[in-house]
């Protein structure tokens, strides 16, 4: 059994699984942004005249809430495009 080969396989599998798991981070911002939009719609329904203010504040809040999801996405990208290469260098 070629252990070098096995080690590379395990490293690649780990990267792929890790990338998938990292994208679970998208759940949080999804729920959070949904809540934010729901409440913004409530507010607009109650006071349609302040639609502009509510919308711009909501978009800003949504973009801020998105940050953790973006962290997950960047981690996933690093695991797919960067980590395998450095593991292969390490193991060869």
């Amino acid at each position: 059994m070629d252990f070098q080969f096995l080690a590379k396989g395990i490293a690649l599998a780990g990267c792929a699984l890790g990338a998938g798991i990292a994208l679970i981070a998208g759940v949080g911002p999804g729920i959070g942004e949904g809540e934010a939009v729901a409440h913004a719609l409530d507010a607009i329904g109650r006071q349609p005249e302040c639609k502009g203010d509510v919308t711009s504040t909501m978009i800003l809040g949504c973009a801020l809430a998105e940050t953790t999801g973006i962290y997950g996405f960047v981690t996933g990208l690093l695991l797919i495009f960067v980590a395998p290469g450095s593991f292969m260098n390490l193991l060869s």
């Binding site: 973009a63 801020l64 998105e66 940050t67 973006i70 962290y71 996405f73 960047v74 990208l77």
Partner: peptide
């Protein structure tokens, strides 16, 4: 770090 990653992540995700 948060400011940089937020901007970077959004643009890069569009590119990818």
């Amino acid at each position: 770090i948060g400011m940089a990653f937020r901007h970077f992540g959004n643009i890069l995700s569009g590119l990818v």
